Structure formats: C-alpha cells, structure tokens
Simulated scan of single mutants.
Amino acid sequence: MALDTSLPLNSLGFAKPPAETRVVVAMSGGVDSSVVAAMLKEEGYDVVGVTLQLYDHGAALAKKGACCAGLDIHDARRVAEEMGFPHYVLDYENTFREAVIDEFADSYLAGATPVPCIRCNERVKFKDLLETARDLDADCMATGHYIQRVAAPGGAQLHSAADAARDQSYFLFSTTPEQLDYLRFPLGHLASKAETRSLAARYGLGVADKPDSQDICFVPDGNYAAVIEKLRPGAADPGEIVHVDGRVLAEHRGVIHYTVGQRRGLGIGGLDEPLYVVRLDVDKRQVVVGPKELLATRTIPVREINWLGDAPFESRESWRLDVKVRSTRPPREALIRPRGTHEAEVELVVAEDGVSPGQACVFYDPESPRILGGGWIWRGY
C-alpha cells in the first residue's frame, strides 16, 4: 500500500505514524544500542530487538564490556523486558567464524593487521542481520553507532558523528548505498557519550553505567596471538629478527606477535639506534626491523573500494580527498587515483608512519563531514 505523502515525516523519515513504523534495533547489550531501542520505543515506534550470538568461548561468558555473548545477551534481553518490546537472539556463531574470525587469523598469519570490526559490520550485521530485519517486515534497522545518515536528493549520505571523539566512520566505510537507505543511526547527532548515558539513566536502564567495549569482541583479554595460535596451531613458530641491512639480531617467538610500527617488546636492546618493525616476511618467518624513517609511506595501494560519492569513482583521473589510514589518526590530505571501479593508488601529501596491509583507508570530503567510502590497504601491484 502506498504511503500517504501528505503526512509529515516521522523521526525515522517515514510518512506515517511511529506506531505504524516497525524498526528492528540491533542490540549488542551495551548502553548505545540499548538507548536507541528505548528512545524509539518511547517515541511510539513498533520496536523489535535482535541480538546476534556471535561467539561463546570461555571468559567471554563472564566478561563485561565485550558484546554479543553471555552477559551481554542477558543485558539486551533485560532492556527489552524493561521497555516492553519483543527481543530475539539469533545464533550466528558459524557465520561469524567463517566471515570474520577465520579471515582475522589468516590475515595475521599473512603479516597483515586486520580490522575485524569492519568485516563484522560489512558481512554480518549489515548483511545477514539486515536481511533478517526485512524478513520481519521492518521499515528500517537502527543501530547504536556514532555516525550520521543524512537524507539527500541523490540518496542517503554518510556523515561523521557530531562528537568527533566518538565518531565510528572508519569502521563503517563499507556500508553500501543500498544498506544506507535502510539503516538509521539515532545517536549520531549527540554531542557526547555522557549524553547517551544520561538518556539511559532517564529511561531507567540497568546498563546506564556499563563500561564501553575496549577489545575485539572475540579477543576479550586483548591477547590476539593466543587466539590465532588456538585457531591455527603452529602459527607461533619462532624465527629471526633481522635488521634491514641483513644482520640477524635475535630470535622471535612467532611473527603473529608483531605488527608494523612496533618498537616495544622486540627484545633487541643494547643497540645504538631505536628500531621499529618495518616489515613482516611471513614466508621466511622474519621480523624485519630498521630506523623510524623507513616506516614513512606516501603511496598506498587500496582495493575492495566502496564508493559513496555522487559521480562514479572512475569518472575522474584523480580525487583530492582526506583519508584516514588508522582509526586513531586524523584525516590527512591525499590524491586518490582510481585503477578501475574498486582499486586505487592513494598518494598522501605528507607521509604517514606504520601504514600496514590489512588496515582500512577511509575517504572523507575535505569540505564537509561526508564520508565518501574507502577500501583496504594491501601490499601493492
């Protein structure tokens, strides 16, 4: 049935009353998604909460501040009970292992530095969960991410969060235009996380003071190497720490324990110069170290590009945009040269240290808060 366009748009952008608008809220059990669900329920929407059980191992069951397992599922269910809307838990362990965890382990074994949270959004939450929301006849799906969706004549745009300290655009660059059309991010306009917690307290939610997640969800103690060694026995075989000039300096305890740019914990003290990991040679099981200036990178090959601009990506010889090569770094000015629809060469105006394969390179409009997509850094052509 066609919508009555004479009606004003509700807060989710639909020309019908909130009570006639069904929204599936992706609930991790944390304060952010809980506030989204409570806020929309209070506004009168037909809210359905869905939590994905993504993993279920050991300490995760008893650990606060992770997501999508054990206590966090219980917290999501409790919020739904408190606010009076239905809540479902879906077992996605196999999907999550195949789509996220296996690639995470294999990427580390290949000497890369993966970002599994992006793959989770891309391959699980904004793919399978989004399809589940459609199956439930929902008009849209809402999440607790700090990012903004802005309606525009050419289609919805992705914009940075109002609170730069909470902005999650780096982790959401691979959101497609079709997904963006269906998604909603009700927290993106908030000025601070304190405002979110204040809302949680006002709604009387038990998670109002729950700590934020700090680690990758399936690595709740931060020990990546232990998880990879469990998934891939033999992954921690020892090898040599080698200077770029060829000198063998020490023996390491497995390439998976090291990342490009690392200085501490190398076990090669007593030398005249500070040394950093500049390259991981997986085939030779070598950790290659050298002076800091060797970490400087200006030209970055990027592939699997998701483009969110208005004009086709390959319609120009180059794009002058800002880019982020790590989630913790500010955007930097760059020239992006397309090499087809989904690959490009990114040339930084000022070199960056520690650019690593497996990380994302996210594109930003230098004139506005708009995110124009991004891709994955790889080893080169």
Rank of each mutant, 00 (worst) to 15 (best):
L7N: 05
P366G: 09
H145Y: 10
G239Y: 13
V25P: 12
T259F: 13
R123F: 02
Y182D: 01
A164V: 09
A62E: 15
V23P: 05
V323H: 06
L271K: 04
P330F: 12
A165E: 14
G234A: 06
E82L: 10
L54S: 09
D163K: 14
L321E: 03
G358M: 11
V355S: 07
D139T: 01
D56S: 14
W319V: 01
R329T: 09
G270I: 10
I377M: 06
I118E: 08
A26F: 08
V255K: 07
A19T: 13
D75L: 05
F85E: 12
N10I: 00
I216E: 05
F96N: 11
T5N: 08
G246K: 06
Y203Q: 12
F173M: 09
G373I: 04
G13S: 10
E103P: 05
I305Q: 11
Q168W: 01
L3Y: 09
V289G: 08
V89H: 05
R166N: 11
V50C: 06
P338R: 02
A360S: 15
A156C: 13
D56Q: 14
E314G: 08
T21A: 07
S192Q: 09
Y55D: 08
L280K: 05
E345K: 13
H74P: 00
F185A: 12
A99D: 14
F173Q: 09
V282W: 02
V47N: 01
V219T: 07
D272H: 14
V289E: 13
G29L: 02
T113I: 12
E81Y: 04
R232D: 05
D322W: 08
I305W: 11
R78V: 11
L3G: 11
L71N: 09
H189F: 15
A344F: 10
